[in-house]
Write a protein that binds this DNA or RNA. Structure first.
Length: 167
DNA sequence: GCCAACGTTGGC
DNA sequence: GCCAACGTTGGC
């Protein structure tokens, strides 16, 4: 997409973001200053484009624990800062270092997210597969690997309703 | 640990 | 531009 039209028509307003709880869990997010963090380390172009070109401050996010036992949607956050360059790509010591990302023309971007609430009930993939209205959800597609992905408003509301709010 | 499904790389 | 080889993600 040409730069001039990158941000023209916005079609997505709700999101799901994956994190491995062994690396950074929703409880780490809860414990972070201001219950917020920069979402660094995304190294996939489609996911980057979503963050850079579509996400806006305030957009709601489902937080998903991948590589967990079982993997679950665990709570709700929102975008608290729009996309800016991911500095971890510039640092040779960082595991997410990428030499092709230059200070003057960064390849990788990140947003900040802030926790809203943790679900009373974690929602596993197995459970979500049985919920009416989620048949087309990207997360439930076989082979789905996108770490930042769109969620429809309906899907979002259905999931939030099931999750409840932890006391 | 296995392996399917993807994304990226690089030879041609 | 094609595509085989390779690396990664992530459920199970």
């Amino acid at each position: 997409m040409p730069k001039s039209t990158r941000q023209s028509q916005r079609t997505i307003t709700h999101w799901l973001m994956k994190t491995e709880p062994d690396v950074f869990s929703i409880f780490d997010l809860e414990a972070a200053p201001n219950r917020s963090t920069c979402w660094d380390g995304v190294r996939n172009y489609q996911a980057r484009n979503f963050m850079r070109d579509q996400m806006r401050v305030g957009d709601p996010i489902l937080v998903y624990h991948s590589n967990a036992q079982p993997s679950c949607v665990v709570g709700v956050a929102h975008v608290s800062a729009a996309a800016y360059p991911d500095h971890t790509a510039f640092d040779p010591q960082d595991p997410h270092y990428d030499p092709k990302s230059k200070l003057e023309s960064p390849t990788w971007f990140m947003v900040d997210i802030q926790l809203d609430w943790i679900f009373e009930v974690s929602l596993s993939l197995e459970m979500l597969r049985s919920v009416a209205g989620l048949e087309k959800m990207e997360l439930l597609r076989k082979g789905s690997r996108l770490s930042v992905q769109p969620v429809s408003k309906g899907e979002f509301q259905t999931i939030v309703k099931r999750g409840g709010k932890r006391a």
